[in-house]
């Protein structure tokens, strides 16, 4: 799963694999203890570490602006979640989730307030939640 996230962010399998190896090799014993505690979502902790590492590799947010740009880079896999989002929601979600941008940076880029960026981010999560619930209903 983490490799999939890294691939989404880097758009390159060899680079994503290198990041994956670096992340696991950089883990300390205390990190492993902390992220395997009860009640802690291990994947989200690993993803947070990956996001910090990826922050230096911040691509232009415009790469997530439209399905056409995405489909070029992600020809092998389509992201059904971001495809369901409005363009603005997609820009905010991809900018934060895949490119590690802060709400402040995005607010400046999109000429909006940080509160508005957070609201848009929440809306994009609502889209994901609805899709997840729909999928669960189908399998139920």
């Amino acid at each position: 799963m983490l490799l999939g996230y890294l691939f989404e962010a880097t758009k390159s399998k060899p680079i994503a694999e290198q990041y994956l190896v670096d992340i696991f090799n950089g883990l300390q014993f205390t990190d492993i203890q902390a992220m395997t505690k009860p009640g802690i979502n291990t994947f989200c902790q690993l993803q947070a570490i990956a996001r910090k590492k990826l922050a230096s590799l911040s691509d232009a947010v415009d790469e997530c602006a439209g399905p056409a740009a995405e489909s070029k880079a992600l020809a092998e896999q389509s992201n059904k979640f971001t495809d369901l989002m409005e363009p603005e929601q997609r820009r905010v979600f991809c900018g934060i989730h895949y490119h590690g941008k802060s709400t402040g940076t995005l607010a400046a880029e999109l000429n909006k307030t940080e509160e508005a960026i957070r609201r848009i981010l929440k809306e994009s999560f609502n889209v994901i939640r609805n899709q997840r619930n729909d999928t669960a209903a189908v399998y139920r």
Partner: peptide, 15 residues
């Protein structure tokens, strides 16, 4: 956190 995992599961690729 489950939402995040759900996205990741959908986009997962085999290493």
């Amino acid at each position: 956190e489950l939402d995040m995992e759900h996205i990741a599961q959908h986009m997962a690729i085999a290493p």
